[in-house]
Nucleic acid binder design. Structure first.
Lengths: 190, 190
DNA sequence: TTGGTTACGTGATGTAGATCACATTCTTAT
DNA sequence: ATAAGAATGTGATCTACATCACGTAACCAA
């Protein structure tokens, strides 16, 4: 689907904008294409934008002591991603975002988002709801982390995002679950 | 500090409301007092409100198989708490909220919040920022969970909220860290 | 085609933290 | 004041998962 249509339908699920309002809104986004493996945000970078995924799959991840990787989020079409801490607080990125597959994204700068939120009450409403959903999902994941062992978390993940199983290598799924690739391998071969 | 003043100063950190606007905003809150140990939300309940803490300390927690407790959040003065998943999606509460100490809270219904957000762009802005902060904090905690062992998480918690050390029993701190009370005990006696 | 890199499987062993059990102290209610 | 229940400390043992080590298969790029 075309980028503009995808974003339009995504927004329309939460708020109603007129044709002109949406066109104006959309004019603040920049379209970017990336190849598999390319980096969108590197730890240490200044972060100016958040990204809306049109096609492909990204990962947002943290690297500990240059050794271990923990995946905070897989970003699929219609998902938003960035280092929001860095973006909102104007601090250097602590996490990285890169492309698991070739990807097309729309990029919105922090200042444009704030401008659009100030100009259109409806846009502010949209972003409030989007963040709400993210917050709730994050709380759920935290709880699952505390409450469930790896096997259950693995099954939850596949139930929620079945497409991941074929799309992303298993060691990345392990990095999302916070478990070693060996343990994950033993888990589903039994 | 008086409830109204506390809320007013809290809101003023993010947005500017006129005297009349704030009075109108405030008129939607109900003041409630609880004794230590009293329950505010029980798992299974319908959840209608979110709560702004004026004094005392609450905990929001999940109970697994009627045995293990995991604390999602300690709520101190000027913090907001509820079961947001239940509140926004109108599902029965999955988590509980109760009082670690005697507490005074202001209660705002979901419908009143949405009404106020629709009526005042500034109020919508305030709630967007509040949720943003919560989301960022939740992501940080998740990352710390994956990345750090109990000792480091314990030190992080005390660095962030030194007042907790004297205020809440250690087994609750263990429940926040997702660790057994025995392990926590051994940890800080060494 | 070949050589190098990445993904994946699997055994052996190590370890952080859980669980169980029981003792001690501190709170709270009557 | 006293009894009962909460909170805490500490040893012994168990277990889920990490780590290390090595092997094979798949996927590339020259």
């Amino acid at each position: 689907m075309e980028a503009k249509t995808l974003l339009k339908e995504h927004i329309a699920k939460t708020v109603s904008l007129t044709e002109e309002e949406f066109d104006y809104f959309f004019s603040h986004f920049k379209s970017l294409s990336f190849k598999k493996g390319q980096t969108i945000i590197s730890a240490g970078d200044k972060v100016d934008c958040e990204y809306f995924v049109i096609s492909g799959c990204l990962k947002a991840f943290y690297i500990n002591d240059e050794i271990k990787m923990y995946i905070l989020q897989f970003a699929m079409p219609t998902w938003w991603t960035s280092d929001y801490n860095a973006l909102y607080n104007q601090t250097p990125a602590a996490i990285n975002v890169d492309c698991i597959t070739d990807a097309e994204v729309l990029c919105l700068s922090n200042s444009d988002r704030e401008k659009l939120c100030a100009e259109f009450h409806q846009v502010e409403h949209f972003f409030r709801w989007r963040t709400n959903k993210g917050y709730i999902a994050s709380q759920k994941r935290l709880l699952s982390f505390m409450n469930n062992n790896v096997k259950i978390r693995y099954e939850e993940l596949l139930a929620l995002y079945p497409q991941l199983y074929n799309l992303v290598p298993k060691h990345l799924i392990a990095a999302y679950l916070g478990v070693s690739r060996e343990t994950l391998s033993r888990l589903y071969n039994s």
